[in-house]
Amino acid sequence: MISRQEVEHVARLTRLRFDEDELCRLQAELGRIIDWVEQLAGLDLSGLEPTSHAASLKNVLRADEPVAGLSQEEAVANGPDVEQGQFVVPRIG
């Protein structure tokens, strides 16, 4: 089960918006999926370390040496709104 409030909270967090119909459907779908993954809650997994990294690697680092990047023109080439070599975003407040 997932509440309407939770669905709305998560939608805000992820910057998504749904109309009323979509919200209802989504609440039901997410509820079903969450119920389904609840099967994990039944497993006794105490004593197991969570696997957060797929490979057992460590300390893979890079030397502090410069690598050529993009020109300003290349950097903003895909920008939907660009001014003076910078990305424009609408009013923040």
Binding site: V76, N78, G79, P80, D81, F87, V89, R91, I92
Partner: peptide, 18 residues
């Protein structure tokens, strides 16, 4: 912000994102 689709209607940042 940097690439890809941006909505046509974006009076403020939050609206633009959403």
């Amino acid at each position: 912000v940097r690439y890809g689709h941006r909505t046509e209607h974006s009076e403020d940042l939050y609206e633009m994102y959403v």
